[in-house]
């Protein structure tokens, strides 16, 4: 049977997470249809249609989906569900919001955050902040899955496939959009960055965070991350939090600065290819997983690093 993949997009373009989710879908096997929902989302649909291995793209340009609210989006996916045996999405804030709703409406379990496909119905997923890996087999007729995209490479581009319209669903008016404060930045996104530099509680203030972390990030063309402690203290915005309950990343290079290395933080970055830790405490747990550790005061080391790059 076929696989329905919910695209992650901002209408004008497709997020890089979709091509990674597609890789997981293709490993499960079957015709993959990508669903793009949103007014003015044709550019995103066109980008989806050019991903290798996709059979077709489904597009609804109904205004109902402008802000990707979970309630109507789940209803839309459920209306399409009879044609599919697998429905999946990236484990983004949208995927996490919508997919459990879909699963419950279909009376099936959801498999969250898969990191490996062993068979069409058997997956690996982390539990306990990644301190254990479970292998689970689904027994439901329809499999609802979210994909941890940091664990999958992106599918390459291919020849364009057709884009078909799908009917919108009735809006039940359960929730409405009020406003959004998007953090606009010229820096790469955490989810797709090749290099990430993250700051922790040791930065001490928003001003200091900006003063010492950002210049190094700019030199490296890096995305910026933060520990929960730094976000809680207001040194960095919430969407920079890396960890068990924040973003899961796996860049080529992750530089942790003034971060102790709590298991909740490690859960979000320990699959990075190369890890650098800068911390003044030689016993900080972060050094146990770092490839390169520098025991130093970050307020001296970072300006020096910026000059050396």
């Amino acid at each position: 049977m076929a696989i329905l993949l919910l695209a992650d997009h901002d209408h004008a373009g497709l997020s890089g997470q979709t091509a990674k989710t597609l890789t997981a879908a293709l490993q499960i096997g079957g015709d993959v249809h990508i669903l793009v929902a949103g007014p003015n989302a044709r550019p995103a649909a066109e980008a989806a249609a050019r991903l290798a291995g996709v059979a077709k793209v489904l597009l609804t340009d109904s205004g109902t989906f402008e802000h990707v609210l979970a309630e109507p989006l789940a209803d839309l996916i459920v209306s399409l569900a009879p044609g599919y045996d697998t429905i999946l999405a990236a484990a983004t804030s949208t995927g996490k919001n919508v997919m459990p709703r879909v699963a419950a409406l279909l009376d099936v379990a959801q498999v969250s955050d898969i990191i490996e496909v062993l068979a069409p119905d058997i997956f690996k997923r982390p539990i306990y902040a990644g301190n254990a890996i479970q292998t689970v087999q689904t027994t439901d007729a329809i499999r609802v899955i979210t994909v941890r995209t940091a664990a999958f490479a992106a599918t390459a581009g291919g020849a364009a496939v057709p884009i078909e319209p799908v009917a919108a669903v009735a809006e039940r008016g359960l929730a409405s959009f009020v406003d959004e404060t998007a953090s606009i930045s010229d820096r790469p996104e955490l989810a797709s960055a090749r290099v990430i530099i993250s700051g922790g509680r040791a930065l001490g203030s928003l001003e200091k965070f900006n003063e010492v972390i950002l210049p190094v990030a700019d030199k490296l063309g890096a995305a910026v991350g933060a520990s929960r402690a730094a976000v809680d203290a207001g040194y960095a915005p919430n969407d920079w939090q890396v960890g068990q309950t924040g973003k899961i990343v796996a860049p080529q290079l992750y530089i942790a600065v003034g971060i102790s290395g709590a298991i909740q933080h490690l859960a979000g970055m320990k699959d990075s290819k190369v890890i650098v830790a800068i911390n003044k405490d030689v016993d900080a747990p972060i050094f146990q997983i770092a490839d390169y550790g520098l025991v130093a005061d970050l307020f001296e080391a970072l300006p020096e690093l910026e000059k050396a790059l």
Binding site: T94, S176, F177, D179, E180, T181, A182, N238, D239, K247
Partner: peptide, 8 residues
């Protein structure tokens, strides 16, 4: 949310 904050 992933890109910042959203109010509904």
């Amino acid at each position: 949310i992933d890109g910042g904050l959203q109010t509904v």
